[in-house]
Computed example of a mutant assay.
Amino acid sequence: MKKLLLVIVATLAISGCGEKIYDSSYFQANPDKAEEALKKCDSGDMSGGNCENARKGLDDYKAQKLKAHLEGKDK
C-alpha cells in the first residue's frame, strides 16, 4: 500500500512540472511568441500542445492580417 501511494505521489509531482500550455488565441495575439515557439518545435526543444497551438495561432494571425489587407483596413 505504501509503494502504491509513493508511486501515485511521484506521478503527480512529475506531471505537474511541465511547461505552461498556452492556447492558440494567446499565440494569435503574440505572433512573435508563436514564431519563437515554432523554432523550438522545429529544433526539437519543444513538443506537444504549445507546438500545435503556436502553429494554429500564427495561422489565425496571418489570416486575420490578410483579411484586413484585402478589406483595406491594414493602414
Rank of each mutant, 00 (worst) to 15 (best):
M1I: 01
M1Y: 03
M1A: 12
K2T: 06
K2E: 06
K2S: 09
K3M: 06
K3I: 12
L5W: 06
L6K: 01
V7R: 07
V7H: 03
I8V: 12
V9T: 10
A10C: 07
T11S: 10
T11F: 12
L12T: 08
I14A: 13
S15N: 13
S15P: 04
G16Q: 12
C17T: 09
G18F: 11
E19R: 14
I21Q: 10
Y22V: 09
D23Q: 08
D23Y: 13
S25E: 12
Q28R: 11
A29Y: 06
A29G: 04
P31M: 13
P31W: 12
K33D: 14
K33N: 11
K33F: 05
K33I: 07
A34P: 00
A34M: 01
E35V: 13
E35F: 01
E36H: 08
E36W: 09
E36R: 10
A37C: 09
A37W: 00
L38C: 06
D42L: 06
D42G: 12
D42Q: 15
S43G: 12
G44H: 04
D45F: 09
D45L: 08
M46E: 12
G48K: 02
G49F: 00
N50I: 13
N50E: 07
C51V: 14
N53V: 04
N53E: 15
N53T: 09
N53M: 06
A54D: 07
A54R: 01
K56V: 12
L58W: 00
L58Q: 00
D59I: 07
D60F: 01
K62H: 10
Q64Y: 11
K65H: 02
L66A: 14
K67N: 07
K67F: 06
H69Q: 13
L70N: 15
L70Q: 07
L70S: 13
G72H: 04
G72S: 03
K75L: 14
K75A: 05
